[in-house]
Amino acid sequence: MQTALRLVAVLALAALLAVPLFPQIVYPVFVMQTLCFMLFACAFNLLLGHTGILSFGHAAFLGSGAYITGYCAKFLALPAELSILAGTLTGAALGAVFGALAIRRSGIYLAMITLAMSQLVYFFYLQAPFTGAEDGMQQIPRGTLFGLLDLHNDVTLYYVVFATIAGGLWVVWRTVNSPFGAVLRAIREHEPRAISLGYPVARYKVVVFTLSAGLSGLAGSMKAIIFQLAALNDVHWHTSGDVVLMTLLGGMNTVFGPAAGALLVSALTRYLDPFGAWVTVVIGVVFMACVLVFREGIVGKLQHVLRRRPREKRQAVDREGMVRTSE
């Protein structure tokens, strides 16, 4: 079972690496955009799936990453790596502020606070003189990375984006499977108990907020470099909603499920484009079908099916064991 999954992963990786060689089959810019959304969704899920916090303002981090990277590259003429770093750090800093304020509440109230703050950020970028308002910030120079890699070359750009996103996803995976991630799960499962075991829960929440926002900012920064554009879309609350959708579609109790969700939404949006406004309807139907048929999301369901057999065995053993000591 595990080998089947691994095989799929290796094939997907090979396909991704081969993308720039076959631009006539799949448009590399589309793949790069999708990669950014994959990181965005997985980073978002650090909060939703792994800590149990619903943020409804993540577009603010993605959009800030894009705008600040654009600002640094275009107006300050900073090299690409510093621009991207600035975008990422802005996302993280904003995340720390959002987190520190929002975690005073929980559940729907927390979501509302993040939404309100992300709207503040939206109006800032709408009004600020450097953003080009509705037109967006255009003609952001790609520049060269570390003075070596010319990002105007589409193939170079593709591999740089690929490596960066892969690095970001690795950070997500590492975080989930770390001592820190174990505490996050404890907070998700039973917050008062986590406190009673001596964990300063508020501090953990702010740290994971910052981390999630920083990685979202990185996704936005890469997006700005790819499209040479930072637009209001990225910071609009629709995008905050989309990332929730992607995460739930893919499976919030998995590490990379949200990436699959991002791929699905991204592909539907692109390939159903000829149907115009119907795209929204189709995505809506897909979402409803997913929620009704497999609540744990696509990847969640897949894992469940692959693991079913061993688990059933284990439960049978448990049932025998139960008879001995319990009611």
Partner: peptide, 16 residues
């Protein structure tokens, strides 16, 4: 876990 004082280390493996 807490006693080991490394519970904020998101860059470490749970193997720790």
């Amino acid at each position: 876990q807490r006693r080991r004082g490394e519970s904020f280390d998101f860059w470490r493996s749970t193997r720790k």
